[in-house]
């Protein structure tokens, strides 16, 4: 009895969270930046817990993967259909990115020496586990100017597309395309 009631209550909680997140995302997709920020913030917390539970052996890579998955969800946000459960969509992306990460990692470890037991022990006690090891800001520097400058001005400094166009001499549509392609290219750098 008690267990069943507890189960129903947790189902209701998940359902309420799903509705709340979905509302934020849909508002974000129609251009509400504040709602979109709140969506990504809440999503990152769920992702961190989800990935930490599944990547217990590599805790210091969890934050890298949280960032990679956030970037993927942002780049693929046009594939979300409002009639679809949001949890299924987010879960499928997180799972895909995690499997991709594990495959890459298995490939790397096959080439390099595997971690010794001592290293694993140290890694597990690392206080800085929430710092990403791979720095996206450094990867951003590697983008060509036509993508890097639009991202720098529009996404980091918060200038409008028109202001960025004036500043860089690019057309407004080139600025928009630069942001879009630059974030895709960033996701591709991360995968390598």
């Amino acid at each position: 009895m008690g267990a069943a009631r507890e189960y129903m209550r947790s189902r209701e909680r998940v359902g309420a969270q799903e509705d709340h997140l979905k509302d934020l995302l849909l508002r974000g997709l129609s251009g509400d930046g504040v709602a979109y920020h709140a969506f990504l913030k809440a999503l990152s917390a769920f992702l961190r817990a989800f990935l930490r539970g599944r990547l217990a052996r590599v805790p210091d890579e969890v934050e890298d993967l949280v960032q990679e998955t956030l970037l993927a969800i942002h780049n693929q946000r046009h594939t979300y259909d409002a009639s679809q459960p949001l949890t299924a969509w987010m879960h499928a992306i997180a799972r895909y990115k995690m499997i991709d990460f594990l495959r890459r990692r298995a490939g790397r470890e096959a080439m390099n020496d595997p971690l010794s037991d001592d290293d694993e022990l140290l890694a597990a006690s690392d206080e800085e586990a929430r710092e990403a090891r791979r720095d996206l800001a450094t990867l951003l520097e590697r983008l060509p100017d036509r993508q890097r400058l639009p991202i720098l001005h529009v996404k980091i400094q918060g200038l409008s597309v028109a202001e960025t166009a004036k500043l860089t001499g690019l057309s407004e549509s080139a600025v928009k395309i630069g942001v879009h392609r630059g974030l895709k290219a960033l996701a591709a750098f991360v995968r390598k």
Binding site: L29, S30, Y36, K41, S44, E131, I156
Partner: peptide, 23 residues
């Protein structure tokens, strides 16, 4: 880049998404 900075970057001036891309 910290995760919060990434989130801020992604949310800043995020353009509205057009519906019906798949179709």
């Amino acid at each position: 880049m910290k995760t919060d900075a990434l989130i801020a970057m992604l949310a800043t001036n995020a353009a509205p998404v057009e519906a019906g891309v798949l179709l």
